[in-house]
């Protein structure tokens, strides 16, 4: 008994040592980067790094006054919301079909949808670039919306499908004997029942859309359609080099809403990230 207690005490110590070390490793760069955002530009790249900088809001004024940050923010928000709506409209019926009906080719169709998640952006970038150019969509948020929706459709469909599979069939059978049609059952029974799944899928799609880099870089060639992610990469003041304090503040601006939303759906996160394969 004594040995059990001792080994538990030891494991507590190692446990907190290891978890604490990783927490430090996670947070130290973040806090240091925050300090970059709140210091004047002359204190960023110096012969000796400055660990206790002067506090300054230079970068804050700069991103709003010298850069069309409000526009970038608006582009990001519109493109992302639009893409999530497109995804939900397409994915909910598809998930319903994949989870509720028996038909030939169903599993192959499901796998085809899943497999598009594997598509490397670089592989399809060139044809998509020409496609959008031919339709005159380059450099518009419409193109971003369409491409984000395409990237995330597989994830959204599979997450929603996984939640639909959890709903007991009896729930529907009762409604069906009352004479309700399939679409009505989907709308009035299934969708309310899987609302957490729909929200999870939307959040995951939102994160992936914010993070998307390569397509946005190719499609958005002027500030007209820049999003936060690509605006960052272009935050170079020409001969002045990279403007790190502005980059840091924009990074935190984009981080905060994502963080709050993700904390809110924490319990569903693992299920969302694995496209429904792991039920957390």
């Amino acid at each position: 008994m004594a040995s059990v207690r001792r080994s538990r005490g030891e494991s507590h110590f190692t446990r907190y040592l290891i978890l604490g070390a990783w927490a430090f490793f996670c947070l130290a760069p973040v806090l240091w980067f925050l300090s970059i955002g709140l210091r004047p530009r002359v204190e960023i790249i110096t012969p000796q790094p400055i660990y206790w900088p002067t506090f300054s809001l230079d970068a804050w004024h700069m991103i709003w006054e010298d850069w069309p940050m409000a526009k970038y923010l608006r582009n990001s928000v519109l493109a992302i919301i639009g893409s999530v709506l497109i995804d939900l409209v397409l994915a909910i019926p598809a998930a319903y079909s994949l989870s509720r009906y028996q038909y030939r080719g169903r599993d192959d169709i499901g796998f085809y949808i899943l497999s598009t998640r594997m598509m490397a952006p670089a592989i399809v970038a060139i044809p998509i670039f020409f496609l959008f150019r031919n339709f005159g969509l380059l450099d518009t948020i419409w193109a971003l919306m369409l491409i984000y929706a395409a990237i995330n459709l597989s994830v959204v469909t599979w997450i929603i499908r996984s939640y639909m599979l959890d709903i007991p069939k009896e729930l529907e059978d009762a409604a069906r004997t009352d004479g309700a049609s399939d679409l009505r059952i989907l709308w009035e029974i299934i969708i309310p029942a899987i609302l957490p799944g729909i929200i999870t899928a939307s959040v995951i799609a939102m994160i992936f859309a914010i993070n998307e880099f390569l397509f946005t870089l190719l499609i958005a060639s002027t500030p007209n359609a820049y999003t936060m992610s690509v605006a960052l990469a272009n935050f170079t003041g020409g001969s002045d080099g990279v403007i790190y304090n502005a980059i840091a503040l924009v990074a935190f601006l984009a981080f905060l809403p994502v963080f709050l939303v993700v904390v809110a759906i924490q319990k569903h996160l693992s299920r969302g990230l694995t496209m429904g394969a792991v039920k957390g």
């Binding site: 990783w22 927490a23 996670c26 947070l27 760069p29 973040v30 980067f33 970059i36 960023i44 790249i45 994160i207 914010i210 993070n211 880099f213 936060m228 992610s229 690509v230 960052l232 990469a233 990279v242 790190y244 980059i247 840091a248 924009v250 990074a251 984009a254 981080f255 994502v258 963080f259 993700v262 996160l269």
Partner: peptide, 18 residues
Amino acid sequence: FLIPMLFMPSAVAFIYKL
């Protein structure tokens, strides 16, 4: 532990570049 994952990849790239 989740925090690093929620930064944009381009932002993370700049953290490490700097």
